[in-house]
């Protein structure tokens, strides 16, 4: 039963071979047509404006503008376009920021081509698809015990950021041009607010929950 292509697709990924592999696969799906490709977030936005695709397959980690920023922009300016995040990673932070930026689905780069084709069809009908690992990451985020007394003050936030970079109290003091004893006071209130007892624990928590910009 010959079908006329009715879902117009844009692929965004900085990996050339991946784009050409996906282009080949889309040829085998009669109801899908590839209208364009982009290798950065900025290009993706331009191509969305020019081509008005139905669905965008979006990589998240790309040079120049990353996928999450591009998704935000696309969803804001072209709300009719659905975006599927297609990533190698399932970090909690990445999944939730892609979805809150407006991606309808989150797939991993281990999905089968049939799974991918179905997710594209569903997305064009406004239906979401989540890789099981991504769903688990969201559940974990929801079940995470709330961090006591978070947020931190600006100063505490700065101190935590430098702790994550591996600086000692003395180095932090030099960096922020404050006394070592003041640094110590901030460090202990950071510990208290995060509910931890050691520097290593505080840093681990900060990294895991993306409490500081990396």
């Amino acid at each position: 039963m010959p079908q006329t292509p009715n879902i117009r697709l844009l692929i965004v990924d900085d990996h050339d071979m991946l784009r050409s592999g996906l282009a080949l696969f889309i040829q085998t799906c009669p109801d899908l047509s590839l209208v364009g490709e982009a290798s950065t977030g900025q290009q993706a936005i331009e191509e969305c404006q020019r081509l008005q695709p139905d669905v965008v397959l979006m990589d998240l980690i790309m040079p120049e503008m990353d996928g999450v920023t591009a998704i935000q922009h696309i969803r804001k300016h072209f709300p009719a376009i659905q975006v599927i995040a297609l990533s190698s990673f399932v970090d909690e932070g990445l999944v939730s920021s892609a979805l809150s930026a407006g991606a309808i689905s989150y797939l991993l780069k281990n999905t089968s081509i049939d799974g991918l084709a179905n997710a594209i069809r569903d997305a064009s009908n406004g239906k979401a698809t989540l890789a099981p690992e991504a769903a688990q990451a969201l559940v974990n985020a929801a079940h995470r015990p709330p961090i006591p007394n978070y947020p931190l003050s600006n100063r505490e936030q700065e101190v935590l950021t430098l702790m994550v970079q591996g600086l000692s109290n003395n180095e932090i003091a030099e960096n922020l041009i404050i006394g070592v004893s003041t640094v110590k006071k901030h460090v202990s209130s950071v510990f208290a607010k995060l509910g931890v007892t050691s520097r290593a624990e505080a840093v681990a928590l900060a990294v895991r929950y993306h409490l500081v910009a990396e």
């Binding site: 990996h15 071979m17 991946l18 592999g21 996906l22 696969f25 040829q27 190698s88 281990n110 081509i113």
Partner: peptide
């Protein structure tokens, strides 16, 4: 590595 393997997998399936 995942990007490369995923591309290879897509091609092998296609």
């Amino acid at each position: 590595v995942t990007q490369t393997l995923f591309s290879a997998n897509v091609i092998a399936e296609t």
